[in-house]
Design a protein around this nucleic acid. Structure first.
Lengths: 268, 268
DNA sequence: CGACTAGTTGAGGCCAGTCAATGTTGGTGG
DNA sequence: CCACCAACATTGACTGGCCTCAACTAGTCG
């Protein structure tokens, strides 16, 4: 079997001309940390997908200013746990996270698979406590956005307010899509939807939409799709036999996206 | 079998002293329509669960002022369809609605069962188009809340802003609960959760939490729970045999809520 | 009264789960 | 560098829970 290349990061299709940091900012090196030099909304590659999308340069600077700090997580480290007090949203700068909801009896369900530019923590706003837990799937870095500051700024900046509402609303829409998947699709449809969905999200981030590396185990994928890990594994094998995909561990290559789409919505 | 009484509306437990309309308001009858006399946030029985929860009298009046109008729906009438332009949220004043998401192939999934005081339409904010459709399960009346006006007012009124964010966040939390249910629970657990959840919601609205009337068909309940109508029907019968509930068509009486809770989270 | 919709119940089949054995991979330390 | 180990993944055989198909009943509304 031909080895599968790793996905190649590209410039996001939606990105404008490369943002240049204003001349004055970097000079007083003594008071600006290395971290500050590197990470600003203005220069972040995710600015076209993240909370500040569509803001003016000036507005973006203000959003930048409310980023309390940036947190680095190693693989399998927890960003927050269910029940912990909520105080901030998190924007993923680098890496990826899974969010899992827990039943009282300990059963857990992967509710979401979040990557670059996604905002997590939205479920904590309603109760002031996080309702699920977020765990890094690889080495990951997030911007910490204190929620009271976001609200303050949103009152003064309609564009930010609108973006915040859109982010929350899209999370609702996304969840409803998962509900449709879990409630009415058969196993092979679920996996096909999952693979196509990932392809689309990688594409929008400027990565290859036909080759990518899964960051989750078969068990986590299964949990996300309401399936057992053995079922996921069997389906990967079958899709490969049928020439729809090529799999090697977590490296996936979509060979026939059309056929995958046709699987979705098929009776038997 | 003893007939099951219809649920008796009570004063919501959270309600303060009965709100009295300011003296001057009702007098110029010529310019105040009958609708206006009846329906204001200040006097609405759902004000402790709906968007204006916790607002001052003055703030509530301002929210009141942005209610464009109120729409009456007969049973099975559609409030909005998937794909229609989004312009307003809707607060349920009387009655109940289901929201359904549709797959391309026509399959549909009941995403939510919404009652008095619930806000629907939140999924439309992100794309400016409604992502699902909302259909009245009985004769229903909703307050129409134009979203741009909500946003305008929310910028000036932190308490409203906070409430809006909480409403959206709780929708996310709720959806995650449904995902947990659909992804990891067996049929009998799903129905038990559904019945207990309804009991809790009726309780918070001041109705009986042990006797209520379902507004959905077996098929709709099944769709909501990711089951077929026959399975739902069988489970109702079995729960009744086991003395957990009493069912007569859509009238349900919970006889042993403890046992229902114990069903949830049981292996086999 | 007949047509229709909603609901109940039974028989049998199938998809995905369960249990179990084996293979593969990646990280660690000798 | 390689041996080792643990975690991850694959595959097979069997099981069982829910679906499918179908017949029948109970209300409801012209």
């Amino acid at each position: 079997m031909a080895p599968i290349a790793k996905p190649v990061p590209l410039v996001p299709a939606t990105a404008g001309p490369p943002a240049v940091r204003p001349a004055g900012v970097a000079s007083p090196a003594a008071v600006i940390s290395i971290r500050d030099l590197k990470t600003h909304c203005l220069t972040c590659s995710m600015r076209e997908l993240c909370l500040p999308v569509g803001l003016t340069t000036d507005e973006m600077k203000q959003v930048d200013a409310l980023v309390a700090n940036r947190t680095k997580l190693k693989k399998n480290e927890t960003l927050y746990r269910a029940g912990e007090p909520f105080h901030a949203l998190f924007a993923i700068r680098i890496g990826s996270l899974k969010t899992t909801v827990l039943a009282e009896d300990g059963r857990e369900q992967v509710a979401g698979y979040h990557m670059l530019g996604d905002i997590v923590g939205l479920d904590g706003i309603g109760t002031d406590r996080h309702g699920c837990e977020a765990i890094a799937l690889e080495d990951t870095e997030v911007c910490v956005l204190p929620f009271v500051k976001i609200e303050d700024l949103a009152r003064a900046m309609p564009a930010l307010q609108r973006n915040l509402h859109q982010v929350m609303s899209r999370e609702i829409t996304r969840d409803q899509g998962v509900m449709l998947l879990l409630g009415s699709m058969r196993a092979e449809e679920r996996l096909a939807v999952f693979l196509l969905n990932l392809a689309d999200r990688y594409r929008r981030r400027g990565y290859s939409s036909t080759e990518y590396v899964l960051r989750m185990t078969r068990e986590e994928i299964g949990s996300h799709l309401g399936l057992k890990l053995e079922t996921v594994s069997r389906l990967f094998s079958r899709f490969q036999e049928e020439g729809l995909i090529q799999v090697q561990g977590r490296a996936v290559k979509l060979l026939d996206a059309g056929a995958l789409k046709r699987i979705v919505g098929q009776r038997g």
